[in-house]
Simulated assay, not measured.
Amino acid sequence: MAQAQHDNPKLDPNPGSNTQKDPDDWVSGDEPMTGAQASYLTTLSEEAHEEPPPEDLSKAEASKRIDALKEKLGR
């Protein structure tokens, strides 16, 4: 027997997001930040007139700083 449409998450018109997770809960959050994160953080830091990020940030720390700088800059 076929499942009801509402039981299939692929057919849900308003699926829950698994792309927005608290950085503290990331499995890879302790890994070094990516090159893309470092580049974006540097750009945001320059625009916000702040010091560039330290090179030893983790992915989770970088994500939190990106969010904070975006909020500061009104993005």
Rank of each mutant, 00 (worst) to 15 (best):
L69F: 04
A2R: 12
N8L: 13
P9A: 15
Q5N: 14
P23E: 05
Y40N: 07
L69M: 08
R65I: 00
A38V: 02
D56C: 09
E51N: 09
Y40D: 10
E51C: 04
S17F: 10
E51K: 11
K64D: 04
I66L: 04
A48G: 03
E71D: 09
V27T: 13
K59H: 09
S45P: 01
D30G: 10
E31M: 10
R75G: 06
A48K: 11
A60Y: 04
H49P: 12
H49Q: 15
D7K: 13
P52M: 02
L41V: 00
P15R: 12
E46Y: 11
H6Q: 12
D22H: 11
A2W: 09
A2G: 09
D7Q: 14
M33R: 00
P54L: 03
A4V: 06
P15N: 13
E31P: 02
K70W: 03
T43Y: 10
D24W: 02
G16H: 06
H49G: 15
E71I: 04
S28W: 08
L44R: 01
L57I: 00
E55V: 06
K72G: 07
T19V: 05
S39W: 05
S28N: 15
S45T: 07
D7R: 13
G74N: 11
G35E: 12
T19E: 12
P13W: 07
E61W: 00
A38Y: 12
D30N: 05
H49K: 15
M1W: 08
Q20Y: 11
P54Q: 05
P53R: 01
Q5E: 14
N18V: 08
P52H: 10
T34M: 10
V27Y: 14
P13A: 06
Y40E: 07
D7G: 10
